Simulated assay, not measured.
Amino acid sequence: MIDVNKYEGQITAIGPYVVEFLEANILVLFGLSAPEELAEFAVLHDGTTLHAPLATGDTLYVGSSSFQILAVGEVANANLANLGHLVVKFNGENEPEQPGDVCAEALPLPEIAVGMRIRIEG
């Protein structure tokens, strides 16, 4: 089976509070239209199109690191498609805590940097 590129974007800015979320193994993504108060704790990116819905078993790439997606909350796809917003919790859980959460493998996150690519394949 050929992997489908479901979503892709490049990091354009990193909010000042992102480090606190990363320390808790949470990556908050937002598109470029994020309000300033949300941009403060988000990684902003230029991705604009969700080509196919995210699903359990997809792979999230953050730079050169990859993580298997273990669960997708019921509104995560709508948030990503409409706002470029995604909350990824690298907690190894098979059930999302919140409807907008995506759970991924509990592996160490790479250092997040402007210019890094984020991609989701399924």
Rank of each mutant, 00 (worst) to 15 (best):
A52H: 11
Q98L: 12
C103T: 14
V43L: 03
L50N: 02
D3F: 12
G47H: 09
V43A: 00
L50K: 03
V75H: 10
V87W: 01
A104K: 05
G92T: 04
I14P: 03
I112K: 02
V4I: 15
M1V: 10
Y61P: 02
A81R: 12
P35G: 03
F30D: 05
T59I: 06
I120H: 12
L27S: 00
L22E: 08
N94T: 15
D46N: 08
G73E: 02
I2C: 13
H45P: 04
Q98V: 05
L22H: 06
S65E: 12
G63H: 08
E37N: 11
A55L: 04
F30E: 03
L86C: 15
V87M: 08
A106Y: 06
P53I: 00
D101H: 06
L29I: 00
E20D: 13
N91W: 03
T59R: 08
I69K: 13
F21I: 00
D3I: 07
V114S: 08
K6R: 10
K89V: 10
V4P: 15
P110E: 06
V75E: 06
L54G: 07
T59D: 07
I26S: 14
N82H: 09
L54A: 06
A34H: 15
A13L: 00
G57P: 07
E111D: 13
N94G: 09
P96R: 04
V18R: 14
V19G: 07
S33H: 13
A34C: 12
V18C: 09
L50M: 02
C103M: 10
N5Y: 08
Q68M: 11
E8V: 08
L80N: 05
E8S: 12
G57K: 08
A34F: 10
S64K: 15
A71K: 03
S65H: 10
G47M: 15
A76G: 10
H85L: 09
N79H: 02
Q10R: 06
L29R: 01
A13D: 04
L80P: 01
L38D: 14
N94V: 03
L80G: 06
E74V: 04
P35Y: 01
F67D: 00
G9Y: 05
D46M: 00
A76H: 13
R119A: 09
D46I: 00
H45S: 02
A34V: 09
E40S: 11
A42D: 10
H45E: 02
D3M: 13
S65T: 12
E20A: 07
P99A: 04
Y7P: 00
D58K: 02
I26G: 13
I120T: 12
D58M: 03
L38R: 11
A42C: 09
G84R: 01
I2M: 14
V87P: 06
G57Y: 07
Y7C: 05
N5D: 14
N82G: 11
A34K: 10
V88K: 11
I69Y: 06
M1H: 15
V88W: 07
G122S: 02
F67Y: 14
V62P: 04
Y61I: 01
L83Q: 11
E20S: 05
T12S: 07
L38K: 08
A13M: 03
Y7N: 05
S66H: 08
A78L: 12
E74C: 02
D58S: 06
T12V: 11
E8M: 13
H51F: 10
P16A: 08
N5T: 11
S64T: 12
Q10F: 04
V75A: 07
N79M: 00
L44P: 01
V88N: 06
A106E: 10
A71V: 01
V102I: 09
P53H: 04
